[in-house]
Amino acid sequence: MKIFTRRQLPLTIGLFLATLFVLFPLVSATEFSLRQPATSNYGFANYIWFFTAEDFGKYLGISLGLAVVSAIILLVILVPTVIWLNLGGARFRGLVEFVSLLPLVIPVVALAIGAQTALPDFAQTDEIILGFMFAVLAMPYAYRTLDTGLRAIPLQTIVEAARGLGANWLHTIFRVVIPVVRSTVASALFMTLALSLGEYTLTSLLHWDTFTTWVTTMSQSNILGAIALSMFSLIAVFGLLLIISIFIRPTKSNVVAEEN
């Protein structure tokens, strides 16, 4: 057996400890969330409770709506710009990189204070503003994903072929380029969705109510329910992110094969 060779032993120990570290809180919190103090046995009561809670659907709906808004904003703004960067706009790469990566370096708390004072009036009155702000927060990740994906394909050739065959620009982008990099676009999309669904800092500092703030509010009256809900959303987000990492791989290794 290979794992028992001297060389592999440290790796095996390292992986064992890492697995333990990851699973230990996950498993113990799952145990906790299945407790039913009323009957002092185990069951899904806490999960059933939040699923049937009156506000569950409402807040989940708000969060999903905001996630979709931010994903659409990012796609509309970024996809054409990044395509253009990789065609003729290389001169402006530095500027675009600076603008889209900067949110990574600014603490969200600082942005929240600014948003309170400096946003236009229409943005202060409706929670849709959160969708715009989430788009700002997701911008660095979405930009990186899209740029890596578009660099990996022979974009120039594809665009020339489409244009040469008489497609106009909109056609070229929507019917040719986006389908070719659809796994990249999908992973940028999922990343934005995951980020928006879990966002708490901006939401709570700007005093809006979404799924995440509802969980914290609720935890004061029903901690078991809040923990069940947290486990549910952790696992949902794990699922979303795992889908991304599965999506990303084929683009990196072989685009042509994927395009059959």
């Binding site: 230990f24 919190a29 914290t216």
Partner: peptide, 19 residues
């Protein structure tokens, strides 16, 4: 990649439930 993106409220509550 998945774990590095966990954080916020669910992570906090998971640890409250565990430890």
């Amino acid at each position: 990649g998945v774990l590095a993106n966990t954080g916020g409220v669910p992570l906090a509550f998971m640890f409250v439930a565990a430890l």
